[in-house]
Write a protein that binds this DNA or RNA. Structure first.
Lengths: 229, 229
DNA sequence: CCGGCTCTGTAGCTTTTGCTACAGATCGTC
DNA sequence: GACGATCTGTAGCAAAAGCTACAGAGCCGG
């Protein structure tokens, strides 16, 4: 049940529930009370589109956002999720560099998002260590991830990269809720190649395939696949 | 002719020649005078190795640093250059996240580097807008680059990526001072593949090859190659 | 000048991945 | 239950890239 958007003073309690906004200076709080807005997002509808100009910083207060890219053939690849207390690093990057947003964002389930307008966020960044920390950490984390992904593309073959993806995405019970097409989009290849590689994993007993899901049956076998040069 | 390393007060004139350090507050200057060091680097010898713990931020005062990766077969791939007034963003990333340095760095020609110890840099970061700006901009620029490279790997074939590399690296006179092996390392492929593709470019009149160099003869032909799907 | 090292060019074969096509299974809606 | 959409599995062929091998050219130092 979506509430009406909350602006200024009414949005503060939600924001202060996040640790990074709890110990701000009085001046920063005053600025925030005049500029921040919180709103509930409908699951499924894009909140941000590729090419959107970015006017502020987005923080997840509750729920979860999914950031995804669209491949030329229309398929979606999830880039990353944003959990409560986290900010959208692509939006930060766009904000600090006057770039347009490079992907799409949608809410997964009921999600509350705080939007801090650009000039306000920059001012907070100037004066508040916790904001500086979250900004640099978000950018650094993204740098780390992108470097790892680029290295993986150069260093590994597709079977190894698929094995890695399965290991990384497996839940506690060893389940990956992805279609082959989604895996293909993530790895930058075709669905048929994923199917072919998956057949080998099935034959070796490493996984079982279901419609829309994969079950890891022998993680060690996947790790062994990863270790082959 | 390398001078002895300059510490504290003696290093300040060189540092203040860089715009970002020119308008610092008095307290920041006082801190800097007690902590900064400048030194001249020998061309060729690595300044930083992969795996090195990072103790501070590196700014180029004069000359130029080259950051490079080593492939498993020992070949070097230049990742980026650092010019005067710029900082080593990998070192920043390592510093803020307690990571080890991910590559190698060497000086190209006579180069002077200022090292600002970690705690001092963090303090400057907290209070000085120009330091905040250079930090966020360096990280953001790296994010942008890595994202573009990752997208290029997925969206283009090797011939297109080679054409792009030649266009990007060509000097004003259309010369690229790289061996085929270096191009291969950069693109994550083999020297023979580069040779094969280069033969096609030569046959079409787009380039001429020399030992250790490539001469672009028809940039439009390379661009046309880039545009083919 | 000579020798060693590195770079370039080439060939042939193999492996990996992509493309096209098809059929069957599964799921949700009417 | 029927139907349409989507997902999975498979096959065959093509294209791209990798691997191995070799020869010749160019550069530098002794």
């Amino acid at each position: 049940m979506a509430r009406i958007p909350r602006k200024g003073e009414q949005a503060m309690p939600e924001l202060e529930a996040l640790g990074i906004f709890r110990n701000l200076g009085e001046e920063s709080r005053r600025l925030l009370r005049r500029g921040v807005a919180c709103k509930d997002c409908q699951p499924g509808l894009p909140i941000l589109h590729k090419g959107t100009p970015i006017s502020g910083a987005y923080f997840v207060v509750g729920g979860r956002l999914r950031v995804y890219a669209l491949a030329p053939d229309g398929t979606e690849a999830t880039l990353y999720y944003i959990d409560p207390g986290e900010t959208c690093v692509f939006a930060l990057n766009s904000l600090f560099n006057d770039l347009r947003y490079p992907a799409w964002v949608q809410a997964e389930g009921p999600t509350t998002v705080a939007l801090i307008p650009g000039p306000l966020f920059r001012e907070l960044f100037r004066r508040e260590p916790s904001i500086q920390d979250v900004t640099v950490r978000a950018l650094s984390t993204l740098v780390f991830r992108l470097m790892a992904e680029l290295e993986e593309v150069h260093a590994y073959k597709l079977d190894q990269r698929l094995a890695n993806l399965l290991l990384l995405r497996a839940s506690g019970e060893g389940e990956i809720a992805m279609t082959q097409q989604q895996m293909a989009a993530h790895l930058g290849t075709t669905r048929e190649v994923v199917a072919r590689l998956m057949r080998e994993f099935v034959a070796s007993g490493a996984v079982e395939t279901r419609r829309g899901r994969v079950l890891v049956r022998d993680a060690a076998a996947l790790e062994a696949r990863l270790a082959t040069c």
